[in-house]
Design a protein around this nucleic acid. Structure first.
Lengths: 150, 150
DNA sequence: TAAATATTGTTTACAAGGAAACAATCTCTC
DNA sequence: GAGAGATTGTTTCCTTGTAAACAATATTTA
């Protein structure tokens, strides 16, 4: 508490060690660091990949639902989708049943792009948590599923 | 794969279900949502709280080390600290041993503020993961510690 | 059916956070 | 000890993401 920390591991976190939200934030920052170190040079960021992937798995999904599932706010989703549309990866379609909504599908180019990206993306993802045993990693996955409510 | 998702739970994530980085991002977004819903009106955000808390636990800690531990980049740390200094919570001191560095301590006001904030902050943190059993929550904490390398 | 309310996506204006270039200081090597 | 290189913090500019107001369409209520 009163000895000055000389190295990063000496830093005392005290009660933050038991703070779940805090640890999740740190974990996520570590993931990002890892991501940009390994595959930062690619043309898809994590958010963009997940959007394309989910559209691929759910063709015709509406923007609002995509946002709900990926926890992306509407204002931001609009920009993301427009950028992907401008790159020719996604196409937007307004359904007759609800002319406010937008239904999303991949273009042929988008499908090719995501299939190609999936190779390196999931390879990278498999490397996340490489400092844990397979059993621990699996346990962490399961607990996160439960935490998220998925 | 080809049935259009009607509700958010119907959205198929497929391989993303096993992607640790992706799940951590989702978990963290859920934490933030929870935070702003519950204690968003307070005058300290999660990042600010953690900075003040760690300074409290490690008086005289240097900016660089604080940033390393909390994974906050130097450019951003500068702004954070200046804002906290402007609010009279933190004081900066340049040590004689290394005149490039900045050593951080709390002001009396800062100490009072963080002690007061700690009440609601940790109460809030205890509510994170309330949908899990105590054992699961503990397990998640331990696994995150290991994942982060703490 | 007409008016009130809710939902969906967009726009605009801003806050949070990062990358790169910089200045100051320290350390290492010769 | 003089110069090369590393470290620390700051500044500037840019990207990512959000909040709030808005427009268009649906739904509910009277």
């Amino acid at each position: 508490m009163d000895t000055l920390a000389r190295t990063a591991d000496d830093v005392e976190l005290d009660r933050l060690n038991g703070a779940l939200g805090f640890l999740l934030r740190l974990a996520q920052l570590k993931v990002y660091e890892h991501f940009f170190a390994e595959v930062g040079g690619r043309d898809l960021r994590p958010g963009e990949f997940s959007v394309l992937w989910v559209i691929r798995c759910n063709p015709g999904i509406r923007q609002s639902m995509l946002g709900q599932r990926l926890m992306i706010k509407r204002a931001h989703m609009t920009k993301l989708i427009r950028a992907l549309e401008d790159r020719g990866l996604v196409s937007r379609c307004i359904p007759d049943e609800d002319r406010r909504a937008v239904e999303l599908t991949l273009t042929a180019v988008g499908r090719t792009a995501i299939d190609e990206a999936a190779e390196w993306f999931f390879t990278y993802e498999d490397g996340v948590g490489a400092n844990m045993s397979a059993a621990e990693r699996k346990q962490l996955l399961d607990l996160l599923h439960k935490f998220i409510g998925l």
